[in-house]
Nucleic acid binder design. Structure first.
Lengths: 236, 236
DNA sequence: AAGTGGTCTAGACCACAAT
DNA sequence: TTGTGGTCTAGACCACTTA
């Protein structure tokens, strides 16, 4: 880390990062405390300030420290762990499990949305409702129910768009990188859901609700109801 | 972005980042394609290579591009979206919702684990089993069932450790920053679970199973069964 | 052998917010 | 006003991987 820097297999910033992590874990830098400035740490570790900056930036991204100009860097009060959750295409999720994907469109029509949908898609006048089931090896895998804001993606109203390609994929292609919110919960299957998925009413469904927004207006609200047995796996 | 750099409210690397994002979304850089090298892009944007590097590093962290030395940077074949999931302490989750947290220990004793637990905690000889319910405003919120590897955290066997502090918090304090796997799914409540949570058997539970590992051996396996109504919310 | 990303440095200027 | 983080630069050396 000195003079010409004797090469660094793992990167010097990692050494600083790991040592900072150790001090936080060992309560040498207790929760809420201000840690030394970049300049001081650079001095201590004998490296450039940018290297310390890199290390602390990673810690901040992980939520372990909070940084503010002039105020300095302080250890987060409650260093919460985070996990990264992939939001894959349904088809890819099924194929990744080694199964054959297929798909049945139940309906696609413009229709007035129920109040709780209207509330979440405020500003959307005309909404297209799409319902479909995705199958893994011909067994029902997930029920997709979706509302699409026709003001933002009017092409979705073209007849036959969702005959072979699911709304799931169509929207990823046509509205990529959109922001949004995701909500995960368990719910007993309603009779209609149970029927669509070939289950008994009341079965425990894993449900994800996802609202996708463009900067100006909501794009789509999707509810995916997964048949029992599906697990969402994450690394921490 | 030229000569003395006319200051940058948002950072020049963001400009490069956003333009790259646009080109990926617009399929000017189609999935799987190799994009220009850092040097070429630095030339195009009139900035230093490090600035381009920063932009592309963020895109790589987001999973939108893949980078390999010599091979270059290519657009991911299927640019999957990711969401960040916070794994909070149960007490903090309840208090964040404005409710009062309380806690009842159902039992804590060393006991042989069933086969499916032994399989996931390979190498752990002596296991402590802990069961407890967390309440929000005196209503059952989640059932915590946990197996702890006594070889790694022998202090957990001390009598009375989990009387007032939950195993959840105790382990966060005593084994911070551990790696692991997280699994989310829905399941119908078993009779014993239903009773502990005050529900009818078969109720739809939101379940998380989490295995925490130290570099050498498993530390703990926890199953959290949430009463209906609990939602896990994420930003995308 | 050669070209790409990965990292480090020393210095600089700036934005921001606490004082 | 001042001290902190945020960013940029120009150059350098290295690691890795493909050719």
């Amino acid at each position: 880390m000195d003079a010409p820097a004797p090469s660094s297999a793992r990167g010097d910033w990692r050494a600083v990062h790991d040592e900072a992590l150790r001090r936080i874990g060992a309560r040498e830098w207790p929760p809420g405390a201000v840690i030394p400035s970049e300049t001081e740490l650079a001095d201590e570790f004998g490296c450039a300030r940018a290297t310390v900056g890199r290390a602390l930036r990673e810690l901040a991204a992980a939520g372990l420290v909070e940084r503010r100009r002039k105020a300095g860097t302080r250890v987060a009060v409650s260093p919460t762990r985070h996990a990264r959750l992939a939001v894959p295409l349904i088809r890819e999720e099924i194929e990744a499990a080694g199964a054959v994907w297929s798909y049945a469109l139940l309906g696609a029509e413009e229709r007035p949305a129920p109040p709780h949908i209207r509330a979440r898609m405020a500003g959307a006048e005309r909404l297209l409702h799409v319902a479909a089931v995705h199958f893994a090896d011909d067994r029902p895998f997930v029920l997709e129910e979706r509302w699409i804001n026709l003001a933002i993606v009017p092409e979705a109203a073209r007849p036959g768009v969702f005959a072979t390609e699911s709304a799931n994929e169509w929207l990823v292609r046509n509205a990529p990188f959109a922001e949004g919110e995701l909500s995960l919960f368990a719910e007993a299957a309603e009779p209609a859901e149970a029927k669509a998925l070939g289950l008994a009413p009341g079965a425990a469904l894993f449900v994800t609700e996802r609202l996708t927004r463009s900067p100006d207006a909501p794009i789509t609200f999707a509810r995916l109801s997964y048949a029992p047995g599906r697990r969402m796996r994450l690394e921490i």
